[in-house]
Each structure stands twice: as C-alpha cells, then as structure tokens.
Design a protein around this nucleic acid. Structure first.
Length: 569
RNA sequence: CGGGCUGUGGCGCAGUUUGGUUAGCGCGCUUGACUGGGGGUCAAGAGGUCGGGAGUUCGAAUCUCCCCAGCCCGACCA
C-alpha cells in the first residue's frame, strides 16, 4: 500500500471534546470517525487494526475448540420473551416494529439465539460444544463515552459452551480464562481477572478481565499483597470488630433539632459516632418501597442490592416516598418498628447494639437500638461498598481501589437458558438432561482502545506489532527517482518476507512523515534518504524506543522480518 | 434521567457581553516558486445555511422563545 493513495486523515489537533487518550489518538491518527454518539466509522487504518484483533481472538478461541458461526443481529421479540429478558433488559435493548407490526430487538448478546440453535443437540455424545461468532451488538447505553470505550454499536466475540455437566463447564470456563489471557497478552493489554457480579446475564459466577486505566469505568478492589481482586460491585473487606457499650432495655427517643445528616449527628451533643449509627435508605426495589440499612459510615453499593434481591429495577426513593412510607423526611429515618416494608440490612451490622438512628419523626432520633432486638429484618446481605485502605478479606493488607476498563467477561450460566429453550440431551442412561451452558464475551473495539490506552506516548500510538495497521513503513525522505526505486524494491522484498508494509511515498517534508508514522504507531520505520543511500544503507527505527540502526540495503528485508517476528512472538 | 458545558469552512479557535459594510485567524487543502533528515518559507486561491426553526428589528453569528446535537460529571450499564 502506498501512503499517497491511502485514506489516512491525520489531524494535528484532536477534536476538543475527546478526552480519553485512546479517543484522541484514534481520531487524530485517522483510525475512526464519529457518526453520532456511540457510533463510529472504522476508517481503513482502524479497520486493519480491528481485523487483526478479531483474527487473534478467532485463533485463540479456535485453539480451545471453538466453531465459528454468524447469527443474526435482529431478533424476534418472542425469543427474548421466552427467556424473560424482553422485560428485564429494559431500555438497553433497541427495539423496532416491522411492517407486519411485530416487535423485534437488535441483539445485545446472543444467549437466546445460540440456545435456539443448540436445541437441536440431542445426545450427550455430541458434547462438549463450543460455539462463537464475532458479531455486531447494539446496546442503547445511557451514556456512550470515551470514543471506542463505551459505544452503542460494536463488534463482540461471544462464545457459548454446552456441556453435559458442571465439570465440563468448569473445563470450558478455564479454557476461556486462559485463552482470554493469551489474547490480552497478544494485543498488548495488561490484564487480570476479578470476581464480578453477573448482573443481567444470570448464572452462578463470573470473572471479569480488567486493565488498569483512568479512562475506565469500573472500580476494582485489589490487594497488593495476596492478589485478591474483585469488582467493587462484589468486593468485601475484613472489618475491624466494633465493641458496643451496653445500652438501655428499650430505645430512647431524643430531640435532635435540625440534625439531618450522619455528620451532624456525630457532632451533636448526645449523638453518636458514624460507626455507631444506622443509616436507613429508602429504596424502590422493583416497585416495592424497601428500607436498606447500612452502618453510618458505610456506602450502599446498588449492584450488591440488586444481586441480593434479584431485582430488575432498583432506584433511590424520592423524599416524598420516604415521607409517605415512614412519616418523616430523609435525615430522620429509621427502621425500628417498621413492619410494613421489607428491611434489608448489611452484614456489617450483625449483633450490633446500642446504635443510634432516626426516629421517623423530623428532629427526633433513637439511641440504644439493638439491631436483633429492635429491627424486623427481612433479609441480611452484603451491601456496603468497600473503601481504599480497608483490610483485605483474605490477608488483611490494606486494599487499593483501582480504576479499570472491563475488557472481557466470562460467565458460568448453568442450565437456566437450556431449560427455557429446551436444550436437552439424552444422557448415557437414557434421561433427558438440560445442557450446562457458559458464555464468554470480549469486545473488539474496546480492546482496540484499551491497547491504545496502554501503548502510547506524547507522539502518538505505539501499536504492538501483532495488531498494528502495518508492521513497517518505508519513509522516503525524497521522492526522487532513485529514492522511489529503492523504496519500491524494499517494499517488494518486505512483502516477499511476509512483512505487512506501507510505503510512504508522499511528497511531503520529512518532519511531516516522521510525525505521521509516529502518530499512527507503526512499530518499525525504514528511512530511505540520500545520506544512507550514498553508502547503500537505510535506517531502521523502532517506534517504541526510538532506537535507530543502520542496515545495508541488501539485508533490510531479512532484518525487518526478523524484528517483526520477534516483536510478535 | 439529574447537573455542568459547547455548537461559527475538514480540525483547532476568535467574534456574541454592547446587533451595523463583504464573518476573521491558525492548521489542513489547491496552484506556483524556493526548499528538503523532525509538522519550512513566500505568493495566489478554493472552501462557511454561524446546529435547526420561529420571532424582535431598517438590520441578527450577536437579542428572545422553542427544538436538536455533541462532550464532561453523576445515576444507570451484558
């Protein structure tokens, strides 16, 4: 490919509304252009990278026995109704009505669709199976952002495993765990696995793969000592025991004029330290007004509440709802004596006594509250969000909270989908048994962006050779006949040596060409200029280090081919 | 969905407060010349419904109203 003929619209300035490094560089480098919020066009350079990532994913999934499919991205509503997710998915799913008046959905994921195909499985002898496709997903995200990192339309490799039993699923799950780590390694994205909430996917357990980045949207609790790592939606910590002083036999009401916050009650004479207060939150859980109680100095993690209740829709209650439910405004709420609403209470409050909480009357609180004695608890659950510095749950070293990009997610689904879609096989003893499923997803574009986040400097992108749009660029200092002839000769030789090479034959100044080559991140640059040509030499510069080596013309192809092979291994 | 911000040639911006010839500047683009190892210089050009609509006015990028889009924070998110 000749640069002069290729559409590579590099920009000197990034669009001012791009903030994330990957967003700025992918736009500046002419890889992507935005169509509208959350939808990006892949330009030729971008599509090359995208395809190389897809190919690596394909190779690694094939290596663990995957069979590639291509399933539709538009689905009839009935399939989603059959799994129940037509209703539970809510607004994330794009829906449209066809000319016959039928409801359709654009696929956000493909458990249902693969399951309908898998319904044809009939014998345990056919298992295990591992099926996948690389397909466009549509998700009507509330807030697309950061270029390719969160979009509404994107290519995802999603695979689905089918096994006779849980042991089989464990094998496929572990295979994916290893395959995913190899993929991230090959595309230059540092990764680690964390315990995660399974969210709307359902299933028993899941592992998310994360890469640390300020551009990410997930917080991960990590132990620097023992390696414990969990999404904040799932993380726990080892809490120091609090010793309560003995309290009264019944809670005491006391006046607290104007006190509306935990902090104010701490400061109030006769109040209580935050860790001796009960914080009562009014939440609406699938339409039911519910009291959620956590320790005064703790924060509720909503995903934990969703996981604990199995709810679809959870939101904070409005002040009017609190007033209607409890007769007081936020700031004076409490769960003592409440029997007409579910009360869900955080595990950290087990056995606590002599606590202070709102009295459900403005300007009044209760002290001497004994959790077991005075609250009618509907459900105990781990609800609190851990904070940095709290002791690791396994080794008690202070944990860190690290911002991360979620780059992959693997789920053990179990038999739920199989039962709903009749994916059963006959076992050796002739019984119909539901197939045990797993599902495994990795977004191509997001990983492309994640790789840029991990591989760039102030000059631009530094692609790993494995996914670079080109492995090498021949930069002609002059476009005179001699340079062009040498450039074309080297180009042919490199092609024959199976190097993916671009010939920068543009009639531009060297500075422009160097800057562009660095911006678009091609790993190796071959500089053809009059200085070297006088001695029958060219220069090879490595993008990552900037190191330049002088190489005789005749050795160039072999030299670069070797460098590329080394970089890709 | 709540809060904040922004829409002016392909990109980055000024002009809007205080309405007034033909809407400027840098980059990029075209042509030519000189150049040629880190975004060069000079000259001549092309390119704009000032996000959209309605209104006020002799006159609107500028004032008023409505709408739309994009970005950031939060909520939410397989």
């Amino acid at each position: 490919m000749r640069w002069s003929q290729m559409f590579v619209p590099t920009l000197r300035d990034a669009p001012n509304d791009a903030v994330a490094a990957s967003h700025r560089l992918l736009v500046r480098g002419g890889f992507i252009r935005q169509l509208h919020a959350g939808h990006y066009s892949m330009l030729p350079m971008g599509w090359r990278v995208h395809q190389k990532i897809s190919q690596i994913v394909r190779e690694e999934i094939d290596a663990i026995g995957g069979q590639e499919f291509l399933l539709p991205t538009m689905h009839p509503a009935e399939i989603w109704q059959q799994s129940g997710r037509w209703d539970t998915m809510g607004e994330i799913m794009f829906r449209l009505v066809d000319r016959k008046g039928n409801d359709n959905a654009l696929g956000i994921t493909h458990e249902e669709i693969f399951a309908t195909v898998a319904a044809e499985l009939s014998s345990y002898k056919q298992l295990p199976q591992l099926w996948y496709h690389i397909q466009t997903k549509f998700r009507d995200e509330a807030r697309p952002k950061s270029g390719l990192l969160r979009v509404r339309e994107f290519a995802m490799k999603d695979s689905y495993s089918f096994d006779v039993d849980w042991a089989g699923l464990d094998v496929q799950f572990d295979n994916h765990d290893r395959a995913y780590r190899r993929i991230f390694e090959r595309i230059g994205v540092p990764s680690f696995g964390v315990e995660a909430s399974s969210g709307a996917m359902g299933g028993n357990s899941s592992v998310e793969f994360m890469t640390p980045s300020d551009a990410g949207e997930d917080d991960v609790a990590m132990c620097p000592s023992c390696g414990y790592a969990a999404n904040i939606e799932k993380a726990t910590s080892h809490l120091a025991a609090v010793v309560d002083e003995p309290g009264p036999a019944v809670p005491e009401r006391f006046a607290t004029p104007g006190v509306r916050t935990i902090a104010a009650l701490e400061a109030f004479a006769g109040g209580a330290a935050a860790d001796r207060q009960l914080k009562t939150l009014v939440m609406v859980v699938d339409g039911t007004v519910t009291l959620v109680v956590v320790r005064g100095d703790h924060q509720l993690n909503i995903q934990k509440l969703i996981d604990a209740t199995g709810a679809v829709q959870v939101r904070a209650g409005e002040p009017e709802e609190a007033l209607a439910a409890l007769g007081a405004n936020p700031g004076s709420l409490g769960a003592v004596g409440v029997t007409h609403h579910p009360v869900i209470i955080d595990e950290a409050l087990r056995g606590r006594t002599n606590m202070t909480t709102g009295a459900n009357e403005d300007d009044w609180h209760l002290r001497g509250v004994d959790v077991d004695r005075d609250l009618r608890v509907t459900q105990w659950a781990d609800l609190r969000e851990v904070s940095a510095g709290e002791p690791c749950p396994t080794c008690q070293t202070p944990i860190d909270i690290v911002r991360c990009i979620e780059i992959g997610h693997i789920f053990k689904l179990g038999t739920g989908y199989a039962e709903k879609f009749g994916v059963t096989v006959l076992s050796p003893d002739g019984k119909q048994i539901p197939v045990v499923m797993g599902s495994y997803g990795i977004g191509v574009g997001r990983n492309m962006a994640a790789s840029v986040e991990a591989n760039h400097d102030d000059k631009g992108i530094i692609w790993p050779a494995s996914i670079a749009p080109f492995e090498a660029v021949i930069t002609l200092m002059r476009v005179d006949d001699e340079s062009m002839a040498v450039g074309e000769r080297l180009y042919d030789e490199l092609r024959q040596a199976r190097v993916d090479v671009l010939l920068d034959d543009r009639d531009a100044r060297p500075g422009v060409k160097f800057a562009d080559a660095e911006l678009v991140g091609i790993p190796f640059r071959v500089t053809v200029g009059p200085k070297g040509l006088a001695n029958g030499e060219v220069e090879v510069t490595e993008r990552r280090t900037g190191q330049t080596t002088v190489v005789p013309l005749d050795d160039l192809a072999a030299h670069v081919a070797h460098l590329v092979a080394q970089a890709k291994s």
